Computed example of a mutant assay.
Amino acid sequence: MTEPWLRRAARRTLVLGVRGRGARGSEWGEALIGEFEQTSGSWEAVRWTLSGLRATWRAARVPRRVRVRRRTVVAVVAAVAIGVPVNAYAAGVAYIPSGSMEPTLQIEDRVLIDKLSFRWSGLDHGDIVVIQDATWGTGSETWIKRVIGLPGDVIECRDGAVYRNAARVDEGYLADGTVTECSAVTVPAGEIYVLGDHREASRDSRQLGTLAAAGVTGRVLTRMWPVRPAG
């Protein structure tokens, strides 16, 4: 069966937007193109293309509201320069398997993952990370959580809010009325303390304890899909 013209046009537009006149785009751009084939129907293909172009333009402009630091961009570019393969090492696209990060990330959202440069630049408070750690499950289980505490931080909860080193953590990403209860803990060396944004639905460091930073396999750069209106 002949592929619908709208879908073909969407694919060509995405390829042109990612690669320009080159034979190949950035590592994560190529991941976007690869994920295009998992869309179904013409309109879903168009929406994926629009989302992919938006992510491409965001990365190019590095606006203040996107949590992609310049040093991260430089590191990714360096990875491309030395020929790091797509997905295997540098970048990839992943879907959100549960509601534990709502409202920031919703079930079946697609996100762009940095698999490499965070190992050089380090993690920051507020980073959303992908975790695979045998102490938190079978080892094959994937968790996506937000970094709240780094080594040496004292994490505690008071009156439903999270405090780090005696200062209340600004958590504007939480839904209104969110209450967080936790036991006080000092994050050990080489470990991190993570929470899901949907505190009532998330299993995280409150129940499972801190985990080795080595269990982090990626950092979420941006949500790509589906396109949702700003507001």
Rank of each mutant, 00 (worst) to 15 (best):
V80I: 00
D176L: 08
L112P: 02
G215R: 06
V227R: 08
A175T: 12
L6M: 12
P4E: 01
G22P: 01
R11V: 00
I113M: 15
T49E: 03
A167H: 12
M224N: 06
R8Y: 02
P4D: 12
G196W: 10
W5S: 12
V179E: 14
W57G: 04
T135E: 13
E3M: 11
E37G: 14
A213R: 14
I155F: 04
D159W: 07
Y95V: 10
Q132L: 03
T138P: 02
V147H: 00
V154S: 11
V220C: 05
S205L: 07
D153V: 10
G177W: 08
E108G: 00
R203Y: 13
F118A: 01
R228H: 04
D109K: 05
G34R: 14
V76P: 00
I96C: 00
R206E: 05
P4G: 02
G122M: 10
R199M: 05
D127H: 01
A60I: 02
R61W: 10
G83F: 09
R199H: 12
L16E: 07
I155R: 07
R65N: 10
L116Q: 09
L208Y: 04
I82M: 13
V86S: 09
I82N: 01
S100K: 08
F36K: 00
T186Q: 12
R71D: 12
S51W: 04
E30N: 10
P63C: 11
L53E: 08
P63F: 12
P151Y: 01
W48I: 10
W57M: 07
V86I: 13
D109E: 08
G196K: 06
T142H: 05
P85V: 05
G218T: 05
T39Y: 05
A81S: 12
E3F: 00
M1L: 07
R158T: 09
Q106R: 15
G29L: 07
R61H: 08
G52M: 10
T104H: 01
R58C: 03
I148H: 05
K145I: 07
I113F: 08
T222I: 09
S51I: 01
V154L: 12
G20I: 11
M1S: 14
G209F: 00
R24H: 11
V220P: 00
E156S: 15
L174I: 02
A88V: 13
V111F: 01
P4Q: 04
N165Q: 10
